[in-house]
Design a protein around this nucleic acid. Structure first.
Length: 926
RNA sequence: GCCGGGAUGGCGGAACUGGUAGACGCGUUGGACUUAAAAUCCAAUUCCCAGUAAUGGGAGUGCGGGUUCGAUUCCCGCUCCCGGUACCA
């Protein structure tokens, strides 16, 4: 008596695969390679959640399929191990993040192993927090630090080639992407001190120091991520947060903007993702030009993509951070303007742009229109203009821009009409293809393209500006005031940063006594004086690198995990790169994916790798969402209110709490909440009907939202193969879907029935010999074809449905032929590998199914055949007759009406098209 | 706000380039087996109306329009949900 004992089977084959090293790739081989990669996980304390396996199973199916096809497959899985949660946990408990992280990794590995993923065994040792790994992250940072961007060759070069130029020809000898504002001759350069030279070089290096704004929470003494700030207070504890500038590292990413755009054309990513990257980079052509301020020597520089609409400019807007406000504001407006600037300073960009209320202040000053004699333009400040984009100042053209229009209407400002036939009372006219300019002097009668050119020429001739290209892309901030990240291999001497000697790497994270921030805005490393201060007077960088540092190059390490000489071996790199298929969540569409592309391009420029795009094909698996619980805190208080009562309070902020704290009817267990964190233990709770009701919403499954569901219990109840089939069956890989257990029984039932198809009650095989009948071959070949086409499209739900159909069909046909069932088992094997191995063995095979040859299918059994032939009706109309619907050719020939019959049927009718399925006419179109 | 995506039965979803809407699974209902239950097997299952029944009629793919002989599919305008929005990873 044997039944499908998934626990024993799965344990048995997982052990087998480990012992036989079944999934190790050959380092370099004559075989074609296939590199299939998952975005590596951050090992959070709550373990793997049911969303992770979705992508992992999909990539595993592809990896196993390629093995069946004879490829040398690399399918790795490492860990993105630096990050905020472990540090936060350390602050709360004193536990070292390294310890927490390692424990989490071990539990992740256990969970991953349980799902039966065909990962190359070495790859699990890629952990970004491992000194043997981050030593190379630091090394790459030094490479970036020690390079500059040559605009003539359009690539990064080592910094030495720049100093060579400076020595020979001064600052004009290099056409570099830089931020240096002066100039010097070769002789000047040679006479400079080492320190002076390094100071200048910092303006050229691809990694540089600059001031940028952060969310500073004085009460917590730490910098917060944007999503840790809710409505101007910290999510944790509700303390006020202010914006504050801080000296930090950044990359000159804008130098790569055009190449990052161009590279998108040669990789197979989905169009929406490419679109998001293009929009993120946000290349726009236009002009930078100056407006003279009335009664002042100052000018205001603006950037506009529509200088052609300059005759419609009726006011100007400066970002609240704009330094000229202080200088230009009139005394009568000063108090109001300063209050406004202070108010908007502490709002995040998202808040500022989300705001539906239109806000702004007139600063009292006027600018002079450069092309309209005697026209005065009032200068305003408003926070819909961002300091970080363009010049932080705009000329507002209400007739041509909807935000300007809304602003003008709200403050009752002039809206000059500049488009022919467009009623200015109806709103802004933003078309770039139509629209003829009027009331625009020399631009009258022109449309956008011509007018733009002419306007730029006029601006240049007048000497007030020039045509420019602007990017929305900002140089990304590369510093974090945290402990748990890569230390910078940087030493400051007299305030100038110097790179460490690469031979001194890794620069290890020192042990600290407390993970608390230093309180002055420096990271916790600043607390360790003996580490920060070197005996020779040098001072180390106290910041650490952000989460995306280690993840920007990990894919280069997987085929050379233990290399101590270099970050990756060039021969292996050439063989394995680039990644054939990269699978991960679409939430990384712009962040990680753009940084990884940037690092790849820099490493390519510097000659370290042979490919300049890392990921040839990218597929974004849709998120499996979780159901989160929320409770409401009355703003600026310690009072929490039950869901039904929130209307009685002016403003409440939603706070996420763990899903386990509320029952099915959303009643909150307040005691659990109080035990959870101290901020809740002393808070006040306002109940309704004697209960406290939590709210809920569907959103991303993440530790932050405390809504994580763990897959272990599913493996426990149904087994990994059921989990794998079920997750694939849930829906298309790329769609988002909320997690649900409904229907998992069906997947399990399918495996049990399939088991009984192959094996008798006493465990012996049931299969018989003989060739398949037509019907049997058809369902088999349809199944093979379906799986193959689904592998290309990375959408497996219909494959699983096809397996179930196969089962129904062979049961109906009472099929037991080995020639039908064995090929089916190979098709099923990537989806339910343990199950397939076990049956395979029972069928008498001595070799593992993992490398069994993929079955071929015969086209005539699978192809949808369509017979289309034109028919003349009433001498004139052409008619197409379509036949088919997933039938084999012979069936069509048998069932379909003959051409003569159809023609007879159509006699005397004025029809255009006839749609026919076998044997009957379905739709006669009149 | 801006950028990207989505919406189809009670539920997850299927429908290849505009041509039988609802494959496959879950759930539900009825039946078989059983002393009974579980498991298993068989059948029905978009909704509404009529009929004892076979069956017949009507509506139907988020909302409002449009193109077409024909629209889940293409176009225009909305609503709601999800992801990103630069320090979550």
């Amino acid at each position: 008596m044997t039944q499908y004992d998934f626990k024993a089977i799965e344990a048995k084959w997982q052990t087998y695969w480990t012992q036989h090293n079944s999934f190790a790739a050959e380092p370099v081989s004559d075989k074609p390679k296939f590199y299939v990669l998952d975005m590596f996980p951050y090992p959070s304390g709550s373990g793997l959640h049911v969303g992770h396996p979705l992508g992992y199973i999909a990539s595993d199916i592809v990896a196993r399929f390629r093995l069946h096809q004879g490829y040398n497959v690399l399918h790795p899985m490492g860990f993105d191990a630096f990050g905020l949660p472990a540090e936060q946990f350390a602050i709360e408990t004193g536990q070292h993040p390294a310890k927490t992280t390692e424990e989490n990794i071990q539990s992740f590995l256990k969970q991953l192993n349980r799902i039966g993923l065909a990962h190359s065994p070495d790859s699990k040792d890629v952990k970004t927090c491992d000194p043997e790994y981050y030593r190379w992250t630091q090394w790459i940072f030094l490479e970036i630090f020690n390079s500059w961007y040559n605009l003539d060759t359009d690539k990064a070069e080592p910094i030495d080639s720049l100093t060579d130029r400076f020595e020979k020809g001064g600052s004009d000898s290099a056409n570099a992407y830089h931020s240096y504002e002066g100039s010097f001759t070769a002789a000047d350069w040679r006479h400079m001190s080492d320190q002076e030279q390094h100071k200048i070089l910092l303006d050229y290096r691809l990694a540089y120091n600059a001031y940028s704004e952060v969310n500073w929470c004085p009460a917590l003494g730490t910098v917060l991520a944007n999503d840790e700030v809710v409505n101007g207070v910290s999510e944790r504890g509700g303390h006020p947060v202010i914006r504050r500038p801080m000296r930090q590292w950044a990359f000159r990413m804008r130098a790569y903007a055009d190449r990052l755009l161009a590279g998108l054309d040669k990789i197979q990513w989905s169009e929406p993702i490419k679109e998001q990257q293009r929009n993120w980079i946000g290349r726009s052509e236009g002009a930078n030009f100056h407006f003279q301020v009335e009664g002042s020597s100052q000018t205001i520089e603006v950037f506009s993509t529509r200088p052609d609409t300059i005759f419609g400019a009726s006011f100007m807007v400066l970002a609240p951070e704009h330094p000229l406000i202080e200088e230009l504001v009139t005394e009568s407006q000063r108090a109001e303007v300063e209050a406004y600037v202070e108010w908007s300073r502490n709002r995040t960009e998202v808040e500022r742009q989300q705001e539906k209320n239109i806000t702004g202040k007139f600063i009292g000053a006027y600018a002079v229109h450069p092309f309209i004699e005697g026209k005065k333009i009032p200068i305003w400040t408003a926070d819909y203009v961002l300091w970080g984009y363009g010049t932080g100042a705009i000329m507002a053209v209400p007739a041509g821009d909807s935000r300007d229009y809304a602003f003008a209407q709200h403050f009752n400002l002039e809206i000059p009409a500049i488009f022919e036939g467009v009623d200015i009372n109806e709103g802004a006219y933003e078309s770039k293809t139509e629209g003829i300019l009027v009331n625009s002097a020399f631009l009258d009668g022109l449309t956008f393209k011509k007018a733009l050119k002419k306007a730029i020429t006029a601006i240049e001739e007048k000497g007030i500006g020039k045509g420019t290209v602007n990017y929305r892309l900002r140089d990304p901030n590369f510093s974090r005031q945290r402990y748990w990240g890569e230390p910078f291999p940087i030493v400051y001497r007299d305030g100038i940063p110097y790179g460490m000697d690469p031979s001194e790497l890794p620069l290890r994270l020192p042990e600290v006594e407390t993970y608390q921030p230093s309180g002055d805005g420096q990271g916790p490393l600043a607390n360790i004086k003996e580490w920060i201060n070197l005996p020779d007077g040098g001072v180390r960088e106290s910041n650490t690198m952000p989460g995306y540092a280690g993840s920007s190059w990990y894919f280069l390490r997987y085929f050379d995990v233990y290399n101590k000489e270099t970050f990756t071996d060039p021969v292996k790199e050439k063989y394995w790169m680039n990644v054939d298929l990269y699978i991960g969540g679409s939430e990384h569409a712009v962040g990680h994916l753009l940084y990884a592309r940037l690092w790849t391009k820099i490493l390519y420029d510097l000659g370290h790798i042979s490919h300049d795009e890392p990921f040839q094909r990218l597929v974004n698996q849709g998120m499996i969402q979780g159901r989160s619980n929320l409770i409401y805190r009355v703003r600026d208080t310690d009072i929490y209110v039950s869901k039904g009562l929130i209307d009685q309070y002016e403003e409440v902020d939603p706070i996420h709490i763990p899903i386990a704290f509320a029952d099915r009817e959303d009643v909150l267990d307040i005691e659990k909440l109080k035990d959870w964190r101290k901020e809740f233990s002393e808070a006040e709770y306002i109940l309704e009907d004697g209960r406290f009701l939590a709210d809920w919403q569907v959103e991303k499954m993440s530790k932050r939202h405390h809504n994580v569901v763990n897959p272990d219990q599913i493996c426990e109840m149904y087994g990994a193969d059921t989990l794998r089939l079920y997750e694939m069956f849930l829906g298309p890989l790329e769609d988002a879907k909320p997690w649900s257990m409904q229907g998992i029984e069906g997947a399990h039932r399918f495996l049990r029935k399939t088991w009984n198809l192959f094996v008798t009650e006493d465990g012996t095989p049931k299969v018989t010999d003989g060739e398949g009948s037509k019907d049997e071959l058809r369902i088999l070949h349809q199944t093979i074809g379906k799986v193959q086409s689904d592998i290309d499209q990375l959408s497996f739900n219909t494959s699983v449905a096809q397996f179930m159909k196969f089962l129904n069909e062979v049961q109906r046909l009472k099929t037991s032929k080995r020639s039908i069932l064995e090929p089916f088992l190979i098709c099923l094997s990537p989806f339910a590998p343990h199950f397939a191995e076990e049956i395979w063995e029972r069928l008498g095979h001595t070799e593992s199914i993992v490398r069994a040859k993929w079955p071929t299918y015969i086209e005539e059994h699978t192809k949808v055949s369509t017979v289309t032939y034109p028919i003349q009706v009433n001498g004139k109309m052409k008619i197409t007759l379509e036949v088919g619907a997933g039938l084999s050719k012979d069936q069509i020939e048998k069932d379909v009406l003959s051409r003569k019959e159809v023609t007879a049927l159509l006699q005397g009718r004025s029809l255009r098209k006839v749609i026919v399925v076998p044997g009957r006419i379905v739709n006669l179109v009149v």
